[in-house]
């Protein structure tokens, strides 16, 4: 059996928050943006990460590629723990892991031409490449993602949002990475464009054998793309299972609520289905509820939920709930 491409073990990211009202010697408040996340991702598989805005999805992605200090382990295919590497040692892995960002236009330098933007990873990781080779490579990858190669001298503001995201994808793919991390790549796009970009990612995954971590705040977006799905809430994993299982039989009340809000294309089912409301606001991540973090909004919360944390994840279908598996009674 092949080794997983990447394996995260108990990854945690904690921010020190200095409030303006604090005195200099007050210890900073701690925000656990990512709290004990683990997963295993086999080559060629796609992991979908879903959760509301602010639940730590971007922070997790940034921790994986060492953009933030994190604790835990992130084991790469060759057995290296990425979190222990020096910046210089990490450089080698940066060409194998590429990222696509949420805001397509903002992730492109407005002063650079598309050609220069896409060539940037090549300049960094293939310094021996001649300018001619680099240009050919850029044109090829532009064509691959559905951009006209003759647009190579244009600037980002001359493109639409969907095209900008294609530029971002081209930049990520030009160094032929093994792992592609997509941080809400379609959230900022129109619905019709979303489908195109997801279609493109699907196609690329199939043709290039990419391994993908796909982040979204909406279950419907990850449904078709993912092999595995992880649901995050306040930096914690609520449920993690294969995509088929999670969509067919969601166990965690949070997943069930999220799933009930996803529109179903069939109007008959759509009319009869029940939407489980998520009451109340998202608690502050600075002061998460004791016991089960979801209990303030959980329709099934019991007394035990207030005191005992529900972080026991077992088996291949992980669920952080004392009453996992029971269906919600209305």
């Amino acid at each position: 059996m092949s080794r997983p491409l990447i394996e995260a073990r108990d990854v945690r990211v904690t921010f020190d928050i200095h409030r303006p009202s604090d005195l200099p010697w007050t210890p900073p408040a701690q925000l656990h943006a990512v709290n004990g996340v683990s997963f295993t991702l086999e080559p060629g598989q796609t992991l979908g990460i879903v959760g509301e805005s602010g639940c730590g999805k971007s922070t997790l992605a940034r921790a994986l590629i060492r953009m933030l200090p994190a604790s835990g382990q992130v084991i790469w295919q060759d057995g290296t723990d990425l979190l222990t590497l020096s910046p210089r040692q990490m450089l080698k892995y940066r060409s194998e892991i590429q990222m696509i960002f949420q805001d397509p236009l903002a992730s492109l330098n407005p002063r650079m031409t598309v050609g220069d933007i896409i060539a940037e990873p090549l300049r960094t990781h293939r310094p021996g490449m001649s300018a001619k080779e680099r240009k050919d490579k850029v044109r090829a990858v532009m064509e691959r993602v559905g951009l006209l190669p003759n647009q190579i001298n244009r600037y980002p503001h001359e493109f639409s949002g969907g095209q900008c995201q294609r530029i971002g994808i081209a930049r990520a793919l030009v160094v032929e990475p093994k792992l592609l991390i997509c941080d809400e790549p379609v959230s900022a796009l129109d619905v019709s464009i979303q489908a195109q970009v997801i279609g493109l990612l699907e196609e690329l995954r199939r043709d290039l054998g990419l391994t993908i971590i796909f982040i979204a705040h909406d279950l419907s977006v990850v449904k078709h793309l993912s092999d595995e799905v992880m649901v995050l809430y306040l930096g914690r994993m609520m449920e993690k299972a294969s995509s088929d299982e999670l969509f067919a039989e969601p166990r965690h009340p949070y997943t069930q609520a999220l799933l009930s809000a996803v529109p179903i294309p069939d109007p008959k089912i759509e009319k009869t289905k029940q939407v489980i409301p998520l009451d109340g606001d998202l608690p502050s991540p600075m002061a998460p509820p004791k016991g089960c973090v979801f209990r303030t909004r959980c329709p099934k919360a019991q007394a035990i939920c207030e005191t005992v944390p529900a972080d026991h994840l077992t088996g291949s279908h992980h669920t952080a709930c004392h009453f996992a598996g029971e269906t919600v009674s209305a």
Binding site: M99, F101, S107, N109, R111, E120, P121
Partner: peptide
């Protein structure tokens, strides 16, 4: 985000300053 993108790619800090910060 484009600075973050450059950092994620692994562009060294002096180059980020020259290529991405200074022109802007």
């Amino acid at each position: 985000e484009y600075i973050e993108a450059a950092r994620a790619i692994g562009v060294p800090a002096p180059v980020i300053i020259r290529r991405h910060i200074l022109p802007n």
